[in-house]
Design a protein around this nucleic acid. Sequence first.
DNA 1: TAATATAATGTGTCGCACACAGTATGTCAA
DNA 2: TTGACATACTGTGTGCGACACATTATATTA
Lengths: 109, 109
Amino acid sequence: MEPEIGNFETEMNRGFLQILVLALLKKEMYGYAMVRTIRDLGYEVEENTLYPLLRRLEKNGWVRSKWDVSEDRPRKFYAITDRGRALRSGLLGIWKKQNDILKRIMKEK
Amino acid sequence: MEPEIGNFETEMNRGFLQILVLALLKKEMYGYAMVRTIRDLGYEVEENTLYPLLRRLEKNGWVRSKWDVSEDRPRKFYAITDRGRALRSGLLGIWKKQNDILKRIMKEK
DNA sequence: TAATATAATGTGTCGCACACAGTATGTCAA
DNA sequence: TTGACATACTGTGTGCGACACATTATATTA
């Protein structure tokens, strides 16, 4: 694939990553674990992308966090809020709509 | 839905609109017609979003354009190039991957 | 004991969606 | 016939988010 697609991959991440994070937060999770989970799903994320995304979501009340210092190493655990759940379902709705449109177009001649 | 989702809708458009445009260009089309086509598909686009997107795609050789002045009103018709087709299939691959991941996550637990 | 993995924060850049502004022609109703 | 609205574009400016680069600090492993 061409080098210029790099830019497009960035664009493709926008939106998708937000949904993905909100979806993964069905279970509480800390940032680094989420990076690894996403990679295990076969998708590449930058830590420099995910950490700010989580903080942004928190700043706006879609997720909340608390430090867990009981384990060997301090970890910031994130949980989704009710507002976050509402946002998630809204975004999933948009995603589904987009997906339907693409499928429809690619199908017809 | 919350007012802040507005921002997210913008983010959701990134990536999606690029694929959509490349997909719609299976047939030659001019900008304004594409705006209306997309709206007819039930999706809202700004002209201020679509026109620059088309120009950007052309600048990088994924589409090409020619003015049609034979009709009542001059129109800039866009057509996809071979490179554009390659890009489209690459982006569709990414989209599918993302879609599979989301479906998988939403299904489990 | 040095390298690597874990777990996070912060600053800076660049591209894109979209707001706002403007140009110009065609159509249609009052 | 004129004024509103649709059609069909171009161009500038702003703000936000992905990611590069830099840094801190502890745990694990070779």
